[in-house]
Design a protein around this nucleic acid. Structure first.
Lengths: 220, 220
DNA sequence: GTCAAGATGGTAACATTGTTACCCAATGAA
DNA sequence: TTCATTGGGTAACAATGTTACCATCTTGAC
């Protein structure tokens, strides 16, 4: 049997241990998803492209639910990485907040299908596991750190960085979801709507303007 | 064959014309969806409960895609009705804005599965038609009217009521989606998050406070 | 070194889905 | 009356997730 795919060959990866196989299958699954949408992610397609049988998915992931779960976790890990990278690109943590949140939109547009798996119910009847929710929390943690840094730099801002992060996340999630799912009524500039959504919340949190950095102590 | 369902019997509705059949099938489909989630909405289930064959769905809707489309349109019609009803319950159009937007959340919680069909891709590989997008626009129109009324009452507010409506819609859509899909990291009060999201945008639009109603002309 | 036991994984069958080919019946027009 | 057309039921088909069965391969005890 000839190798069916240059990206990942099961028979080759098998020699390197289960972790490599798992990772390779997940990457291939993500590629199938990106190429042909959710309907293209079939156990048989995956097995064929990976040069193995569908049984392997059942051994390593326990079935398609497990594979979806793995994809979800993978997606949140990538999102977290993307957000963190953008966060590090900025010196001023206050000025960083807006671009960091807009990274959410870039990620969604660049990984539409994966985004659909992570948030929408692109894969039918998938029950999210506690583990995947934990991964989502980790991704949100990057935003939370960003908020905390900005607050520290301003000497002001919300007490509850976690709640502020959730509000920012939710604010950007709305327009991005509407845009990426193609439901946005009245075609509008998605980037502009996302930016407005973020700045509205930032203004409410008093995290928008890098007002002349006062060296006051934190006590009022 | 005995009647399989008290809600809708195909053989009985047939005598009343196609529109009744279409409406009855849609209502039954929505009920199946609400009762058992997207996986319970099967053409065979639907046909069995309706006491007919799956062929009828193909004749009236053209297949499952058409049925999903019909459900989507039905959902947007219901959403619009709900929003309009809430809008009429208030005298002061400015004070109405927040409860009107929160109706979005009530609707999503009361019709989780239908909401998933309307916005998430709960039904696989559904391509939204221009007609369904038009229905979504109609539902958004209710919000737009609400914004326009508030602006008129205040003698101020955004010039572009449509853009303001889209921003409000997107703002509330984020937290509601995260809540209803069960992805909200760190369990939070969904109602509070939705309210904050709306008020943040309202503040940005200067539509929040019914500041002492000035009888000034609109010119500055 | 040999043999048994357990894991690994491929094949094929099964149940369920959307979809459609085939066919029957009814209804209306010529 | 007869024929054609349309509505609609049955059953078959293709694709999918899942699993029973079985071959093969490793591995550890004696």
């Amino acid at each position: 049997m000839k190798a069916a795919n240059v990206c990942f060959d099961y028979q080759m990866a098998r020699a390197a241990g289960d972790d490599v196989v798992r990772r390779g299958l997940l990457e291939l699954a993500a590629r199938l998803l990106a190429e042909g949408g959710p309907q293209a992610l079939t156990l048989r397609h995956l097995a064929q492209r990976a040069n193995c049988s569908t049984k392997v998915v059942y051994i390593l992931f326990g079935g398609k639910n497990g594979l979806s779960e793995g994809l979800k976790v993978e997606g949140f890990a990538r999102l977290r990485f993307t957000v963190e990278r953008e966060r590090r690109r900025h010196r001023d943590p206050v000025q960083a907040l807006l671009p960091v949140m807009l990274t959410y939109r870039s990620f969604a547009l660049a990984n539409r299908a994966l985004f659909g798996v992570m948030f929408g119910n692109a894969l039918p009847e998938h029950v999210p596991t506690e583990y995947s929710r934990q991964q989502a929390r980790l991704a949100l943690g990057a935003v939370e750190s960003s908020v905390a840094e900005a607050r520290a730099a301003l000497g002001a801002g919300p007490d509850d960085a976690r709640e502020a992060a959730v509000r920012l996340w939710a604010a950007v999630h709305g327009p991005v979801t509407l845009e990426v799912e193609g439901i946005m009524p009245f075609d509008r500039d998605g980037e502009r709507l996302a930016r407005l959504a973020v700045t509205d919340v930032l203004a409410s949190l008093r995290l928008n303007q890098p007002r002349a950095a006062t060296s006051l102590e934190k006590t009022p």
